[in-house]
Amino acid sequence: MSAFEGFLFYAFGALLLGSGLGVIFLRNPVHCALLLVLSFVAAAVLWLLLGAEFLAWVLILVYVGAVMVLFLFVVMMLDLNLDRLREGFWRYLPVGVGVILVLGGQLMAIFATGVFEAEPKSARVAEDYSSAKELGAVLYTDYLLAFEIAAAILLVAIVAAIALTMRRRPENKQIEPDRQVAVKAADRLRMEQISVAPPPAPAPQEEGEDKPAPAENKQ
């Protein structure tokens, strides 16, 4: 790791940690969402330093570009009552601190074993190494099953989201194509023969012309 790379690593690592803390501690949810975007960008830079260009770009494009922008809209549209969200903070604080101490202690114990202190395996790769190509090669061969299950999970999410949010309100002016296609002429228009009573006797006209039966329009 050259000095410049080291500088980049520590600078963006600090940015990642700082913005991550901001996400948790800031009061305004919009600021939190924006800081989460910043932390994603910092994480993407760290991945770039590791030589995982493809993942870094995907993180920016998908998470920053799509997911977080959508999330930001949702946060802006929600009518959040911050005071209610913070209710009971002091009551739950002792429990929370206890959990943090236990989990933090575990993490410290893990770090103390020294497994993460080993010299990182060199992430150096050849000039013409394409991480997108390598990733694609294992994604669609070795990890095909996992890839397909992930696709199935997305399908479940779509089905669930539609089933949970689509409401058929009576005032909706929605059209139902299957009913439109299945309709027959007889459903729309009924021809009726109405026997017309013979015209009254004292009719002066000599022609007894039948009028066409009026068609009754149904629906």
Binding site: Y143, A146, I149, A152, I153, V156, A157, A160, A163, L164
Partner: peptide
């Protein structure tokens, strides 16, 4: 494989959450 295990679990769980919530 740990990855397949986790993904299978999520496919099951997400479907189950939605099945309960369908009665909105």
């Amino acid at each position: 494989h740990l990855l397949a295990l986790y993904l299978g679990l999520e496919l099951m769980s997400l479907s189950l959450y939605a099945m309960i919530a369908l009665r909105r």
